[in-house]
């Protein structure tokens, strides 16, 4: 019998700890499939963040170095400069990347570091229990914006991918989602392309993935997927923000 579906080689045989309906497990799988297809499992190094994905090294069967909160791009810079022929990526959430790690992310992009950043945007701080993230939508309820995020008091949702798209050092930025099979396929293509760009020495790339967080959004997984479509994408439209090779 022909095997048509199996666990990617780059994932360990470990069940994900992520909540039901969470986008992280899908994103992990897309990364692992891309690694397999590009045949780089032996020479890729990942940098997981502080956040829900903090123990990503339990799942990926690749070399990984944990980063302090927000510093993924600085840590990845250090690795990549020492080992330029390895493929290096950081995996970061919205709080990690767009709040505490703003400077590190921005300047790694501005230096045009030849690394890949996977940016998981679920509009909340997941691991710490659903506080406001820089990407939380206006009016969205979080544990630290109980009446809903107010522009006046809490500021606006940050469009970090668009900001990075403005930098000459950035080579490829795309926003994807993992809420429908079609979007998952597109996201996979984007992740793989970003790795390929790095292997071709093109430069800095970032893939933002709108990711559902049913637990902290207090929704069922199906509702959460729908919310990504109907609400989140209005604020954060999908598509290529910058592609220097196109």
């Amino acid at each position: 019998m022909k095997k048509v579906f199996s666990r990617p080689k780059s994932l360990k045989n470990t069940a994900f700890h992520y909540c039901g309906g969470c986008g992280h497990s899908i994103a992990h799988r897309l990364i692992a499939e891309s690694i397999d297809e590009l045949d780089i499992q032996d020479r890729i190094i990942g940098v997981p963040p502080a956040g829900c994905a903090v123990i990503a090294y339990n799942y990926f069967d690749i070399d990984m170095l944990e980063s302090p909160h927000g510093r993924g791009c600085a840590v990845a810079t250090g690795i990549k400069r020492v080992l330029p022929d390895r493929v290096v990526f950081s995996y970061q959430g919205d709080g990690d990347l767009a709040a505490i790690g703003t400077a590190e992310t921005f300047h790694a992009a501005n230096r045009g570091e030849n690394i890949t950043v996977i940016f998981i945007n679920n509009a909340v701080y997941g691991m710490t229990g659903g506080q406001m993230a820089p990407t939380t939508l206006l009016g969205q309820v979080s544990t630290t914006t109980p009446p809903g995020r107010s522009a006046l008091l809490d500021g606006h949702p940050v469009h970090f991918s668009e900001i990075l798209g403005q930098l000459p050092g950035t080579m490829y930025v795309e926003r994807c989602a993992v809420n429908t099979p079609a979007n998952v396929m597109k996201a996979k293509k984007a992740v793989k392309k970003a790795f390929q760009y790095q292997m071709d020495n093109v430069g800095f790339s970032l893939i933002e993935i709108l990711s559902q967080c049913p637990t902290n959004w207090k929704m069922s997984p199906v509702e959460a997927c729908r919310w990504v479509n109907e609400v989140m994408m209005k604020e954060y439209p999908l598509g290529i923000i910058k592609d220097s090779k196109r």
Partner: peptide, 17 residues
């Protein structure tokens, strides 16, 4: 680096590598 924080974290990456 863009900050002392970034510098030490680059060192972290480089040391691991």
């Amino acid at each position: 680096a863009e900050s002392e924080i970034a510098a030490i974290n680059m060192v972290l990456g480089a040391a691991a590598a």
